[in-house]
Nucleic acid binder design. Sequence first.
DNA 1: CCGCGCCCGAGAGGAATGTA
DNA 2: TACATTCCTCTCGGGCGCGG
Length: 321
Amino acid sequence: MSEKMIRLLRILNLIQSKPGILARELAERCETTERTIYRDLETLSSIAPISNMGHGKGYQFIGDFSLYPLNWDEQEALSFSMLPSIIQPVKHMLPKGFDTAYEKVMATYKKEKKQNDEILKKVTDIIQMGSPAYRQDRTNFMLPIIQAILSKKTIQTIYHTQSRNDTSEREIDPYYLVPREQRFYLVGYCHVAKDIRTFRISHFLDVRMTDQTFDMKDFNIRHYLKNTWSIERGEKKIHFKVKFSPRVARYIKEEELFVIPKLTDNPDGSLLFEVTVNHDREFLNWIYQYGPDTEILEPKEYRDKMKEMLKKWIAVYGRGV
DNA sequence: CCGCGCCCGAGAGGAATGTA
DNA sequence: TACATTCCTCTCGGGCGCGG
């Protein structure tokens, strides 16, 4: 059984590394007969698109299938890499070809991984981010962050916390990249805070991937960002009722929002906009840009705040230059 | 030369059965 | 119940022949 498994793996590997390989050569490399190879190819044909190229041109995969047998996720790669140490005690019982077959599979895996890394590097080069005005260097930490997210590895970082003007080292399990307002944010588990936190990518001063693998457990990004207007999260549940004038109603409907509002058209063409958010600031900033074309109906508390703010605003312009 | 289907026999290993 | 024997099944190897 295991001998056959090894041979099948080896055939896949051989066809992958040498498309157009002949049955005779497959038989030699697997130390078996052509007849057995034909039988194995029959078995493989049910799970892999192998085709022969006609008289004398051997076997190869159809299309881009070549990646299929090794397209491992991190867990699979890890378990396979652990295989030699597990089977060490019974090693003498294994057939002769095992070591070379294993090495070839591992070599192919590493080659694929390298190719993936190169593609990833190109992708992160494509994502052009802005950088803070005060910083001259444009070090882009997208690559190590995306790599770490994909391979589920903890990152060792130096992060600048704007609100406390504090720079600290912290280990983070990176979960998701969240684009907001022309910026990227990283949502992940912070080992210092021992909780889920949101980090602004441009505030990282250093990011290094470690060898430590993490588990996301039952974290749900949709649930995490529920009722969050943009990125700033709060514990409150504020239900806003806002009216937009007929002039801007059309634009409001086209806004790409992260929180789904309830929209009601009024007979006069104005729009009633209802939404529940867990933090007020970002939502209010969004409202402000529409000036007199918007009116906060509820909660009354925010209606009053708005009134106070406008008084101050008028006061600024009322005293002359 | 090469691919491949068909057939048969050898050998291994497991299941079923027999025996003390 | 424990062990021995027989039977069955599966896999592999090899020969043969057809067809490209």
